[in-house]
């Protein structure tokens, strides 16, 4: 059993979207290294509630690393210090030896802070709605092998489809670009025959929507891939560029 930790938390507090926001420091004592970061935040909130203070608002849902709801920047790292993991799966032992943790929301103009650490990621939904689908007539399910898909293509499509839309790529990008998200959503269709008929329109519309939402441009820095809890590769961004150039040149 490892020793419990005493921590100073520097947390971004913001009343609402219109508020300027500021950092507030809290002391947390006797934190178990075996509890998750979000459980530690729950404890802080219990303490704040007990003291008749406003608890810190943050997003989480499944707490199993699969839904994409949680997401915080801790000490400058989106989803914390553990790679290929969402915030909810990071345990306090990862912060062993640290005494001060700075907790911030995803920071980009396209994700306005709603309250404290909660941001509105609706911009990602709008990119998805701009073309992240295939148009088919409903009816009977087609035969299982009516459309043949090479194993390699289906694997790559699954890798891209692993994106849970958490927005860590945007948060970690020095330019606040949503290229990795958009590229993953374009790739999962571009790699499969079912995505073929609408590929040019899809690439053109989704990239256009990404630009409209006010994300920054991609500078090929690759911080997104490093922060992605699903380890989605920037080779998907290259695929998005091929798809888009196809749409640009005809």
């Amino acid at each position: 059993m490892s020793e419990n930790m005493n921590l100073k938390l520097k947390i971004w507090r913001q009343k609402n979207a219109g508020d300027k926001g500021r950092f507030v420091e809290y002391d947390m004592e006797n934190v178990s290294p075996d509890e998750s970061f979000l459980e530690m935040m729950d404890e802080l909130n219990e303490k704040l509630t007990h003291d008749n203070l406003e608890p810190v608002e943050f997003d989480s849902d499944c707490r199993e690393g699969i839904c994409g709801t949680c997401g915080l920047v801790v000490n400058g790292e989106a989803h914390g210090p553990l790679r290929a993991t969402t915030m909810c799966q990071v345990h306090m032992r990862e912060f062993k030896g640290m005494t001060k943790l700075t907790v911030e929301p995803w920071r980009t103009k396209a994700f306005p802070v709603l309250k404290d650490l909660v941001v509105d990621r609706g911009a990602l939904d709008k990119i998805q709605q701009a073309g992240g689908y295939i148009s088919i007539n409903t009816g009977n399910a087609p035969d299982a092998h009516a459309i043949q898909v090479p194993k390699e293509a289906s694997d790559l499509a699954m890798d891209a489809a692993a994106c849970i839309g958490c927005g860590a790529c945007v948060a970690a990008c020095p330019n606040a670009s949503a290229s990795l998200f958009t590229a993953a959503k374009i790739s999962q269709f571009a790699l499969l025959p079912q995505g073929g008929p609408e590929r040019k329109r899809r690439a053109a519309q989704m990239v256009t929507q990404m630009d409209i939402e006010g994300f920054g441009d991609c500078s090929n820095l690759g911080e997104c891939e490093a922060a992605c809890p699903k380890e989605i590769s920037i080779s998907n961004i290259a695929r998005m560029k091929r798809e888009f150039v196809g749409a640009m040149l005809g």
Binding site: G76, E104, K109, N175, S219, N220, A226
Partner: peptide
């Protein structure tokens, strides 16, 4: 300019993530 506009409020702390990053 797009990058500056996209993040009007900078992080208090930032870190290079390493691994596959090319930053």
């Amino acid at each position: 300019i797009s990058a500056q506009k996209a993040r009007p409020i900078q992080y208090a702390m930032s870190k290079n993530l390493g691994g596959p990053s090319r930053k």
